[in-house]
Simulated assay, not measured.
Amino acid sequence: MKSAQPSVSTTGLLGVWTLATVAELPQVRAELRRQLAAGTADPDAAGELVMLADELASNGLRHGSPPVQMTVSTTATGWLVMVTDGAGTRAPAEAVGRDPALGGLGLHMVAAMGEDGGWFPDRGRKTVWATVSASAA
């Protein structure tokens, strides 16, 4: 995962959530699905967005330092997900050489689903981001 800020412009805001535990993620997923269903989003692309957002937020909660803030914005071609946690000096690390049954493949999933992504430190916090296309692959 590259160290860089996103270069995409946002056109709107779908939501901002502040999370302290993974137990809050089902409610966030449901709210995000409701917002997407109210619009004209391709159902498959919307499903990818929800899964990617869940993975990034889950990683921030499990491997970063809560509280975690997740922001989902619209772009001209899809969505931008940004997840900020308190582990500003710790870069996101993809699991390499690990048995998939042991987990740790979230960043691999994000890379496969997202169009672009990266991370950057800012004032003692870390933001991991990814973009998702609004049309299903």
Rank of each mutant, 00 (worst) to 15 (best):
R34S: 08
D54Y: 06
M82I: 00
G64D: 09
M51E: 03
M70I: 11
G106P: 01
E94L: 05
L56N: 06
P92A: 09
G64V: 13
R33M: 13
P43N: 05
G118V: 08
L61M: 11
G118E: 07
G60S: 12
V81W: 11
A41Y: 02
T71G: 03
L56H: 10
V110T: 04
P66K: 06
L107G: 01
V50D: 10
D54E: 11
E55H: 15
D42F: 01
A101H: 10
G60Y: 15
A95V: 06
R34I: 14
T75M: 12
G78I: 00
M109T: 05
A111V: 00
V50C: 04
D54K: 06
A41V: 13
G106V: 02
A53P: 06
G64C: 14
A57W: 04
L80K: 06
D54T: 11
R62H: 11
A46Q: 04
W79Y: 15
G88P: 11
G39I: 09
L52W: 00
S73C: 11
R62D: 10
R98P: 04
A53W: 09
G97Q: 08
R34G: 06
L61T: 08
M82A: 15
G47T: 04
A91M: 07
A38M: 13
R90K: 15
E115H: 05
G97R: 05
P92R: 06
G117Y: 03
S65A: 12
G39C: 08
R62G: 04
V72H: 10
R98A: 04
V50S: 04
A91P: 06
T75V: 14
W79L: 09
D44Y: 05
G103E: 01
L107H: 03
T40V: 09
G39Y: 00
L52M: 09
G39E: 07
G64M: 13
E48V: 02
G86M: 08
E115G: 05
A37P: 15
Q35I: 13
V96M: 12
A87S: 15
T40I: 07
M82W: 09
G64T: 08
G47V: 05
R98Q: 03
M51P: 02
N59M: 11
M109G: 03
L107D: 01
Q35W: 04
D54Q: 12
A93N: 14
A45T: 03
T89L: 14
T74P: 00
A45C: 07
T74N: 05
D116Y: 07
A76P: 00
T84I: 11
S65G: 13
A101T: 06
H108D: 01
R62K: 15
A76Q: 12
M109C: 05
A57S: 15
A38L: 14
T84F: 10
G103W: 01
A76M: 06
A76S: 09
L52H: 00
A111L: 01
T89A: 14
G47C: 08
A37G: 12
Q69Y: 13
A45V: 03
Q35T: 13
V81E: 04
G88W: 13
T77Q: 08
V110W: 02
A38F: 10
L32G: 01
R90D: 08
A30H: 15
D44L: 00
R90Y: 03
L102H: 04
V72R: 06
R98Y: 00
A93S: 14
M70H: 07
D44Q: 09
